[in-house]
């Protein structure tokens, strides 16, 4: 079994792995011109995506074009602009020559360090009552436009950021108090005689015995807690 797998080619090394989920079978995207027309449409979409970085279109077409755009960008990152097949592929998918330059000179540096997908797809609200078709927004990540979805980390006045800020401040205060405590106790230790060691030992023994008693009481409490004794209604 192992031998067999060792001789198999690693598929990921031949073709770059997509970072998005795609359907197991392609969509035909109803077209009177057949597969040729479908590809022409998708090429237009991929070209528009690279050109405008954010486009609004129907969901099925956006989802279909997204896979091709992802593959094109990942190939460009993998092989660079000296690889002939990649260059041919780029000039096939992008109708405008300057967009091929954009792909290699702008998008490859932008996405080369990315650990996630290069595009994002959102469902757009229905345009009721004029149209009920599902619309979507397809965009390249890192585009210059304002964000489409709410980003809670940008505004420090939002309620969760205020709560987190105060929690952080409190923790810092505690840490400083502990440091001050440590310094003062170490100074005391210097001043005290050797008897201090004995004292602290007896204290530690006391602490341990107290802890054991506490554990026992907790166990007793747990045993006592039947549902009938609880004051709250159980739901």
């Amino acid at each position: 079994m192992n031998q067999f797998t060792n001789h198999q080619a690693d598929f990921n090394k031949l073709v770059s792995k997509l970072r998005i989920r795609i359907l197991p079978k392609y969509r035909k995207l109803s077209q009177p011109d057949g597969p040729e027309g479908r590809l022409r449409n998708l090429r237009q979409t991929v070209t528009a995506l690279i050109k405008y970085e954010r486009i609004e279109l129907s969901y099925s077409r956006a989802d279909e074009a997204r896979g091709y755009a992802e593959r094109l960008i990942s190939e460009a990152i993998r092989h660079g602009d000296v690889h002939k097949p990649t260059m041919e592929m780029a000039s096939y998918w992008l109708y405008e020559k300057q967009l091929v330059h954009k792909l290699f000179k702008v998008l490859v540096p932008r996405f080369s360090e990315y650990q996630m997908s290069y595009t994002a797809l959102f469902k757009a609200p229905l345009n009721f009552p004029t149209s009920l078709k599902s619309r979507s927004v397809l965009e390249l990540k890192g585009n210059p436009f304002p964000p489409l979805i709410f980003d809670g980390s940008r505004n420090k006045n939002l309620i969760h950021n205020i709560l987190l800020e105060e929690a952080y401040k409190e923790r810092k205060r505690q840490e400083y108090a502990e440091i001050v405590n440590k310094v003062s106790t170490s100074e005391k230790q210097k001043n005290l005689n050797n008897d201090f060691g004995k004292e602290s030992l007896s204290k530690a023994v006391q602490d341990v015995s107290e802890g054991e008693a506490l554990l026992k009481s907790v166990e007793i409490n747990l045993n006592e807690q039947c549902t009938e004794n609880l004051p709250l209604k159980l739901h």
């Binding site: 709410f150 809670g152 969760h160 987190l164 929690a167």
Partner: peptide
Amino acid sequence: GVSLPKGILLNHFAYSVLEKR
């Protein structure tokens, strides 16, 4: 108690910090 309004999401670790406080 502590709470967050709908639409403001926080991961469980950050929320547990708020709960502890």
